[in-house]
């Protein structure tokens, strides 16, 4: 078997973060940790796509500002989002005068970006790399589902795309939470075809990556204060726990960003999803806990469902992907 985990020797650090989220997210559980909340989910723009792009761009700018670095100290931006041809990330990169590496792994993009940034910084190739991802409920709805004003019902296994963006600056200096290792996941497809049930589509890949991480880092779940997954939702979390129990692990210290991000009052059902979901929760609430030392060592694993509307309509099943990083405060 090949190796999936890379260990960082120079311990790249996450020196600052910034998050922006919509009004709905702001009122929910992690709301008070989010750096900036939108009063209007158009963010003063005339389209939701522009709003999503602006969220990403502001996050990038303010994460850099928070770190005290100047814009010309930044070497690169690694970013991605859910829209076709990752337009939000690419258009946000238009605002900056440093290299841009566009990546896409659906909702697991934030950890994918962090891992790549970690490798670039750890190898000494770059000093400061910004990572950012985001999503918007309205843009995701129109791309993947129906027009907003259409009076259709949401099925109970579905999730709600988070309106929000998160950015983090990976760098070498300072005493900040450090990334110890990164485990790149494999694409796993157990044959789930229901595009409304992304938790079920992603859970097998989450299980696979976690087991790989435990094996390759020679650790067990109890070595971590927290195992944070991206957007499995309530159902996906349940499925992950069942799957991983069969592989001989119990994960009682597991929390899912999608499950905690909303109060589940409206029709969020299984919780939040989207590239912004884990980016917002980790970079606000969880990062805060890491800084305070309330969390010593954790796994941050974002999960992605690699579907498109075309593949769904052609009856293809949904492949899942999960990437994980181990972070120590």
């Amino acid at each position: 078997m090949g190796k999936s985990t890379i260990f960082f020797k120079n311990k790249p650090r996450i020196i600052s973060t910034y998050t922006i989220a919509g009004p709905k997210e702001a009122q929910a559980n992690v709301g008070k940790f989010i750096h900036e909340t939108l009063i209007d989910d158009r963010f003063g723009e005339d389209t939701f796509e522009k709003a999503e792009c602006k969220m990403l761009s502001s996050c990038i700018q303010k994460a850099i500002k928070n770190s005290g670095k100047s814009l010309n100290e930044i070497d690169a931006l690694i970013s991605g989002d859910l829209l076709n041809q990752i337009i939000s990330a690419s258009f946000a990169a238009r605002d900056y005068d440093f290299s841009y590496i566009g990546v896409y792994n659906a909702c697991s993009t934030i950890v994918e970006s962090m891992s790549l940034a970690g490798a670039l910084v750890d190898g000494g190739y770059m000093k400061n790399v910004v990572v950012a991802t985001g999503s918007h409920f309205a843009t995701a709805e129109r791309q993947y589902r129906y027009p907003l004003e259409l009076g259709s019902t949401r099925p109970p296994q579905s999730q709600w795309t988070v309106t929000g963006a998160g950015a983090a600056l990976v760098s070498t200096d300072g005493i900040f939470p450090k990334i110890l290792s990164a485990t790149f996941g494999k694409v796993i497809d157990f044959g789930v075809t229901d595009a409304n049930n992304m938790g079920a589509a992603m859970a097998p890949s989450a299980c696979e990556t976690l087991v790989t991480l435990f094996n390759e880092t020679k650790t067990s779940p109890s070595d971590y204060d927290l195992i944070l997954t991206g957007d499995l939702g309530a159902l996906g979390t349940r499925l992950l726990k069942i799957l991983i129990e069969k592989r001989g692990y119990t994960i009682d210290n597991h929390v899912d960003c999608g499950e905690i991000v909303y109060n589940i009052k409206e029709e969020e059902y299984q919780g939040g999803s989207g590239a912004g979901c884990s980016a917002v929760v980790f970079n606000s609430y969880i990062y805060d806990k890491l800084l305070k030392g309330e969390i010593k060592k954790m796994i941050f694993m974002a999960t992605g469902a690699l579907l498109s509307t075309v593949s769904t309509q052609q009856g293809e099943s949904i492949p899942g992907i999960s990437h994980a990083v181990v972070i120590e405060s």
Binding site: G2, P156, F190, G191, V192, L235, L239, I242
Partner: peptide
């Protein structure tokens, strides 16, 4: 490492079907 075949898993799909909430 040889290319893997599709890892469709009937057992898992049945589990999903059993656990997925249904419309009232």
């Amino acid at each position: 490492m040889k290319a893997k075949t599709k890892d469709y898993n009937e057992e898992y799909l049945n589990l999903v079907k059993r656990l997925a909430p249904r419309t009232n």
